[in-house]
Structures are given as C-alpha cells and as structure tokens.
Amino acid sequence: MERLTTRLVDELRSGNHDSFAELVELYKDGVFAVAYKILYDRGEAEDAAQETFIRAYTRIDTYDPQYKFKTWLYRIATNVAIDRLRKRKPEYSMDAEIAGTDGLTYQDHLADEAPQPDAQVVHREIRGEMHEAIKQLPDKYRIPLLLKYVDDLSLKEISVMIDMPVATVKTRIFRGREMLKTIFQNREGFN
C-alpha cells in the first residue's frame, strides 16, 4: 500500500488531481476512525474527516516523503478532531441514543464477541466502565492512549501525529495508564 500511496502522492504533486480521489478511497475509513475516537460523534467525525482531506489536498506540498503519508494524514485528522473537541466540550453518556438509530445507545453499538449471554453482560459492563474511565482522562493523556492501544500506532507515529517528542508521548501514555488504574481502584468493586 505504501508504494501505491507514494505513486498517488507523486501524481497529485505533478498535477494529476484524479489521484487524490484514490488516496481518499484508501484512507477514508482510517481518517474517520481517528476522528471518531477523539470526538465520539459520527456526524462530527464525518465532518472532521472531510476537513482533513481538504487540508491534505490544499497542503500536499508540505508533505515530507521521508514520513509515511498515513502518519501525516492521521496527524491532520488528529489536529482537526482536537480543534473540534476544544470548541464544543460536551458531556457524553454511553446510555445516550445515537441519532438516527431508532433507540440504539452507544453501549448497544459496542461490538460483543462473547458467546454466552452472561459473559456478554459482564463484557459490556467492563467495556462500558473502561470507556467511561477513558473519557475522564484529560485529552493530553486520552489521545495518546487511544492512538497506542486502539489504533496500534508506534510511539514514533504518535509523536509525529501529535507533534510531540517520543519521550513525552511515552510519559503521557504511562501517566494515562496510571490515571486509569487510580480511577478503577477508586471504583467500588475494583479494589
């Protein structure tokens, strides 16, 4: 995929604007996922993804080929989503209805792989607890944690995406994990 991406970026820089549509097709799901993990709102994440591609298109000349295009693009997506998050700062609830889903909640939307009904209930409760705990973290800890453990990005990729030294990324991930431990230790039944 890297070769294809490199070819498409080179073509775009040479004036072939059709290659951008192919880049969008290759990366649209990943860009949306990055934005959604920060915003927790489908509509906002779709808008952020669209804005990400507009910025990438208009700033393609700033892309440095020594880095992966995906990392550069995801960094733009992260910044756009963080900007949107800073502008709104709403409260989230896992029990809130998802717009346009006839009553489904975010909790209902979580994937469930446990085969037994009682195991499914426990699994949902744990995921819900983890989700709620992660939401309590300040953005500076939550975002690197999500990028590391949900998106499975390397420390270097995260560093480039959020424009921060690798050592700072490591520290924030460590502190975020410690904060999560404290949150769970302070909850009833997790001692």
Rank of each mutant, 00 (worst) to 15 (best):
D41H: 08
L23D: 00
F20K: 03
F32K: 00
T62H: 10
K28C: 12
V31L: 02
Q50F: 11
D10I: 08
G43C: 08
L39Y: 07
Y27D: 03
E22M: 10
G30T: 12
R13T: 08
L8Q: 02
K28P: 06
G43W: 07
Y57T: 07
R55S: 10
R55H: 11
V34C: 10
R55M: 13
L39N: 02
E11C: 10
A35R: 01
I60C: 11
L26W: 02
E46H: 04
L39R: 01
Y63A: 11
L8N: 02
Y40V: 03
A21E: 15
E51Q: 08
L8F: 09
E46Y: 05
A45E: 05
Y27H: 15
D29G: 11
E22R: 09
K28D: 15
Y63F: 15
L8K: 02
G30E: 12
V34R: 01
V24G: 05
L8H: 01
A35Q: 00
E46L: 14
N16F: 08
E11G: 08
D64M: 04
Y40C: 11
I38V: 13
I38Q: 05
D61F: 07
R13A: 12
F32V: 02
Y27W: 13
I38R: 02
D47S: 11
V31R: 00
D47I: 06
F20Y: 12
K37D: 15
L26M: 11
L39K: 03
R59C: 14
D61L: 04
V34K: 01
R13N: 11
D64N: 14
D64H: 04
R13H: 07
A33H: 07
K28A: 14
V31Q: 02
Y57H: 10
I60N: 02
L12V: 15
Y36N: 06
D41Q: 04
Y57K: 00
G15N: 07
Y27Q: 03
E44G: 05
D18F: 10
E51A: 14
H17V: 15
Y27S: 03
E22Q: 13
Y27F: 15
R42A: 15
D10A: 15
D41A: 09
R42T: 14
L12Q: 05
Y40I: 04
I60F: 12
A56S: 08
E11V: 05
L23F: 09
N16A: 12
D18E: 15
H17L: 15
D41C: 11
S19Y: 07
Y63D: 05
Y40Q: 07
H17P: 02
V31A: 11
Y36L: 09
E44F: 11
D18L: 12
E11N: 12
D41P: 05
T58Q: 09
I54R: 00
E25S: 14
R59K: 14
K37T: 10
E51V: 10
L23G: 05
G30A: 06
E44C: 10
D61G: 07
Y57C: 07
R42L: 12
L26K: 00
D29R: 03
Y57D: 05
K37L: 15
S19A: 15
E51W: 01
Q50V: 08
V31K: 00
A56M: 07
A56Q: 03
T58C: 07
K37W: 14
F32W: 10
A45L: 06
T52N: 01
A49V: 04
A33C: 07
A21M: 10
D10T: 14
